[in-house]
Design a protein around this nucleic acid. Structure first.
Length: 179
DNA sequence: CCGCCGATCTTT
DNA sequence: AAGATCGGCGGG
């Protein structure tokens, strides 16, 4: 489910980005997931139907966004970690004045949300009907398996050994240092 | 370019 | 008390 999102476009009004880095979080069985151990008020969206955005507040100041996937009530989610800006770069820069280079616009889960104007009010947004202006789209330019790499997920202690991060090696918009 | 540290608040 | 992070600062 997760690697198939590489190469897919995220759109929010004039802003368009191509997803180059994702992480899978596999429901209440995954010790690294917010859904681990069962639902809480904060994670309600993850336990709902697929195709919605699960947005959470991180480290007291950042928003991060996941695509809910898999069956209703299973709480599968794919964290959008990085995208390559395609269009609407002016709007992204305006939303992220701290970014000094274009590569800092969307290279990280909280940066991506800031650039696309995604905050807590987007939790539960429907990505299929784009009821809040955010959607996923494909232009046919998908990433081939040979052009992907996998690694462990970033920033976790629980579930740190599971290789559920996928990215496009060599793409300058992938977060962190190359691995 | 790299590593360290503080910010800030929700959840456990 | 720790966390699915980021950016500023100092050193190489």
């Amino acid at each position: 489910m997760a690697p198939e999102l590489l190469g897919v476009l995220v759109t929010a009004g004039p802003r368009v980005g191509r997803i180059v880095e994702v992480e899978a979080y596999c429901g209440s069985e995954d010790p690294g997931s917010h859904a681990y151990g069962g639902p809480t008020p904060r994670t309600a969206t993850m336990f709902g139907p697929p195709g919605r955005l699960y947005v959470y507040f991180s480290y007291g100041m950042h928003w991060c966004a996941n695509v809910v996937c898999g069956p209703d009530r299973e709480a599968g989610a794919v964290l959008l970690r990085a995208a390559a800006p395609v269009r609407g770069i002016d709007a992204m820069r305006a939303a992220r004045p701290r970014a000094k280079r274009d590569r800092e616009l969307t290279s990280g889960p909280a940066r991506l949300c800031q650039a696309f104007g995604i905050d807590g009010t987007f939790d539960g947004a429907d990505l299929v009907t784009a009821d809040r202006g955010v959607a996923l789209a494909s232009d046919g330019h998908l990433v081939a398996p040979d052009d992907m790499a996998a690694s462990t997920r970033i920033g976790l202690s629980a579930g740190a050994d599971l290789p559920w991060r996928w990215y496009v090696p060599g793409d300058p918009h992938v977060s962190g240092r190359p691995r």
